[in-house]
Amino acid sequence: MEFLQPATWEEALEARAASRDAVPIAGGTDVMVGINFGRLRPALLLDLTRVPELQQWGTDDGAVRLGAGVPYARVITELGDRLPGLAMAARTIGSPQIRNRGTVGGNLATASPAGDAHPALLAAGAEVEVASVRGTRRIPVADFYRGVKRSALADDELVAAVRIPPRTGPQQYSKIGTRNAMVIAVAAFGLALHPDRRAVGTGIGSAAPTPRRAPAAEEFLAGELDGLWESRAELPPATAARFGELVAGAAAPIDDVRGTARYRVHALSVMARRTLTWAWADYRKGDPACA
């Protein structure tokens, strides 16, 4: 097995272009598991941990541009205020050691339907910035997932960053597993309220071949919130329940060792209803003062 360790982003992209079957590795929390279990035996590993740009985040054009190599632990400590949904998702991931190593960029590149960051990214309306020697392009995250562990990345491209609009309203995240930590989700759900554009964002995890939004639920809720954004009035329980049903309706789960399809659909409706109830309660308390 060859091991390449580029020191610059340009070198990394050139190496990627030169060997398209290379497996990029950042935190290694997916790749090393694959190698250790004998499921992955790449001829070439492309280690991205020495590329400085990937380790940074900043604001750009109103969005947080999160370098693909920033670990979850830093998302929690440094971005909890701006990206609360993603930080909540990050807190549910693995153990402290895994959160110190694992990255949002890696989560995207693996594109597992059970990846914990995806529902939060979908709800926030993130864009994935991918790059190659040919140039850079941005892909709305909802278009990024193309199948079970398949993404829109071309074989000469690397994930450079993910661009996430900072919150303008409350965000929530909920995950159910077969135990209380260090567990792959049976089902997960992310919710973001966007009072600035009177919109609602959703993300479903572990309940379809890819992470996905629940567009009908988003539209329904945005309609129901028309007028309520200003009045901050109580949300009718029927609205939350209907929202839950519509989220569940967007899922297409399977039975597997972690849970049944029926359970997943049910759990999604509960998580959607709950996260909405929590988020709306926060919003009514004036959180945040959306200017």
């Binding site: 598991v33 077969t178 135990r179 209380n180 930590a181 260090m182 567990v183 792959i184 060792v257």
Partner: peptide, 10 residues
């Protein structure tokens, strides 16, 4: 990873 023994949080 798939045979779940309890963790501290359980």
């Amino acid at each position: 990873a798939e045979y779940h023994v309890p963790v501290q949080a359980d």
